[in-house]
Amino acid sequence: MGFFSRKRSATSAKERLQLVLVHDRTDLTPGQLDELKDDLLKAISKYIEIDPEAVRIELEKDGREQRLVADIPLKHMPRHRAG
């Protein structure tokens, strides 16, 4: 990466544009998206136990449509109900 990156410039152009357009279209800065993620995680943690490290929440683009996609693996929990 960096100085010795062998990625050609068109590839970085496309990747950078993909990110920029997603944020431009939703009018959300990367910072606001992080806040949104934190709030979402807090809300979910009230009900179920999750591993914040494994959570993936991203803005994705499909044609000219935007969606917020969340992949939230639930923590494996030993059953503690008596039975």
Partner: peptide, 14 residues
């Protein structure tokens, strides 16, 4: 691969 292709631009703009 030093310029966005037409396909890239179309894909981005939709």
């Amino acid at each position: 691969n030093d310029m966005l292709s037409a396909e890239d631009v179309l894909d981005l703009l939709g």
